[in-house]
């Protein structure tokens, strides 16, 4: 049997329960039902994200094909991760009648993601490959699970 951290396990269970009730990890957009009075954040959540975790890191994976990596910005403020950038449309100068199909969306986007726990902002890594942005966010020391030795008295 592999040894798993007891608190990690507990943490997982906690996440599981929270997920069931849907209260855990709510992106700020709340599934697109956001007040129109707040500009700058699109009503539709783009890019779509997946979140993973392990003992040391959180991983955010964003589905963002066709973006020039130089136009992709990732920033963190406190526990809020912001992804922004621009997906450029097909080369300009094309007349509308040149199109047979236009299904791929284009334009500027911004998305803020509330992270479930503190991360070490200086050690975040972002990698863009095959249209997927993978961000590795190391957990901050204080948010890592710690074992507490039990003394027998």
């Amino acid at each position: 049997m592999t040894y798993r951290h007891p608190f990690y396990e507990l943490d997982q269970l906690h996440n599981e329960i929270d997920r069931m009730f849907g209260s855990f990890f709510r992106p700020m957009e709340k599934n697109g039902r956001r007040s129109a009075f707040l500009p700058g954040v699109s009503a539709r959540a783009y890019p779509k994200i997946n979140l993973y975790d392990d003992v040391n890191n959180y991983y955010v994976e964003a589905l963002a094909p066709g973006i020039d990596p130089t136009k992709l910005e990732v920033s963190i403020t406190g526990g809020v991760l912001t992804l922004s950038g621009e997906k450029t449309a097909v080369p300009g100068g094309l007349k509308p009648e040149a199109f047979h199909r236009s299904e791929r969306a284009a334009g500027r986007f911004i998305r803020t993601i509330e992270l479930p726990n503190l991360v070490d902002a200086n050690k975040i890594k972002a990698e863009y490959k095959n249209g997927i942005l993978l961000i590795t966010l190391p957990r901050a020391e204080e948010s890592k699970p710690k074992a507490i030795a039990v003394k027998v008295s």
Partner: peptide, 9 residues
């Protein structure tokens, strides 16, 4: 990505 899935869209 590695690790356990916490949230997926």
């Amino acid at each position: 990505a590695v690790g356990n899935s916490m949230y997926a869209e």
